[in-house]
């Protein structure tokens, strides 16, 4: 999902650590206890979570870019206010997540620098462009819908600060998805051109959204440890299937066609989708998606242009602190 670049297995270095502590740790996980920042944890658990939570945070921040693209061009003031609130939420989600990641011992500055240096990933989905207003509807409906599907189980993740951040995020995501679906509904009830615009957006976003859930279970090496540690509760394919089953009736209600002619409903009612083009996914992750360079350039520019604000705030705080010390000495 927002952390789908975690395709490599962490090296298991528990052999170097106290075996008794590791066993006790696993027993706590098995007993559904939450692990808190100052508790003992295997180094690989800390490393996996730092990567996962920080990638999730980066995704929320980069995720503001494709939507921010439409704030000044929203069709009405009501839509504009809603989109602005949604983008502000995404920023808030990024901040909750950075705070959760920091409890594992890396500073936010380090985490952000890793992203700006291209060393840390963010979700592949944000490397696609938002060409029309219908893309904003589709992002809310499908991208946020897929995110909710992934994030609800994360509310029960074994790491306390991450689970608590996810509870806040999930509460807010629900507004995002409904907001997006309402845009789609309005377009689909509008003129032929508007409906065609909605269909075109669905055609372009459908497959990239399915890729958000990450590689198929058969090739995802990372899942085993994450499952054992109860960071991950469902496999990529399980979540993807749940999402497809929930989404197909919503598309039918809109009168839109899922761009998968091979899709069939099986005897159990599950919608079986066709083979996903994983070459495209790998290309986007490798930095060759339609907007990878744009997104990185925009983040670096914003960070560089904000440097004077950080410096001024720090200088002001230092000056005030110094004055307080001087006054106390008088």
């Amino acid at each position: 999902m927002y952390t789908q670049a975690l395709n490599t297995a962490e090296t298991d270095d528990r052999g170097l650590e106290d075996a008794a502590k590791a066993a006790q740790f696993q027993a706590r996980i098995d007993a559904e206890e939450r692990i808190e920042p100052n508790d003992w944890m295997p180094a690989a658990y800390r490393k996996t979570l730092t990567r996962q939570i920080s990638q999730h945070a980066h995704s929320e921040i980069v995720g503001m870019l494709p939507e921010g693209n439409w704030i000044t061009r929203a069709p009405t003031l009501r839509r504009k206010a809603a989109l602005l609130a949604k983008v502000q939420d995404e920023c808030g989600h990024g901040l909750y997540l950075y705070a959760a990641a920091e409890t594992l011992g890396s500073s936010r500055e380090e985490l952000v620098d890793a992203m700006l240096a291209g060393k840390a990933k963010y979700s592949s989905i944000f490397n696609y462009p938002t060409l029309t207003w219908a893309d904003i509807g589709t992002i809310g409906w499908l991208v946020d819908g897929a995110a909710i599907m992934n994030q609800i189980p994360l509310c029960r993740c074994s790491y306390g600060p991450y689970a608590r951040a996810m509870i806040r995020v999930c509460k807010e995501e629900s507004f995002h998805q409904r907001q997006g679906y309402e845009i789609m509904l309005t377009l689909c009830r509008g003129s032929d051109e508007q409906k065609a615009m909605a269909q075109d957006a669905l055609d372009r976003w459908w497959w990239p959204v399915l890729m958000m859930f990450g590689p198929p279970d058969a090739t995802s090496q990372h899942s085993d440890t994450s499952t054992k540690w109860k960071i991950k509760r469902f496999s990529n394919d399980e979540l993807r299937q749940k999402f497809v089953d929930a989404t197909v009736p919503q598309a039918q209600y809109l009168g839109l066609t899922i761009p998968d002619p091979g899709m069939t409903q099986d005897a159990d009612g599950h919608w079986r989708y066709s083979e996903i083009d994983w070459t495209e996914f790998k290309q986007v992750l490798a930095g060759n998606g339609p907007c990878n360079r744009d997104r990185m350039a925009a983040r670096r520019k914003a960070h560089a242009e904000g440097a004077w604000v950080r410096e001024a705030a720090a200088a002001y705080a230092a000056k005030r602190a110094q004055r307080r010390t001087a006054q106390a000495a008088e």
């Binding site: 920091e102 936010r108 608590r164 002001y316």
Partner: peptide
């Protein structure tokens, strides 16, 4: 620039309960 200091945030909701820890954030003052 030094790393921006970390703060813990507590909020009292409208129902008359005590301030409750809700998370943390960075700010220079």
């Amino acid at each position: 620039t030094p790393n921006t200091p970390l703060w813990e945030v507590f909020i009292r909701s409208r129902n008359g309960l005590a301030h409750k820890h809700v998370g943390s954030l960075h700010a220079s003052d």
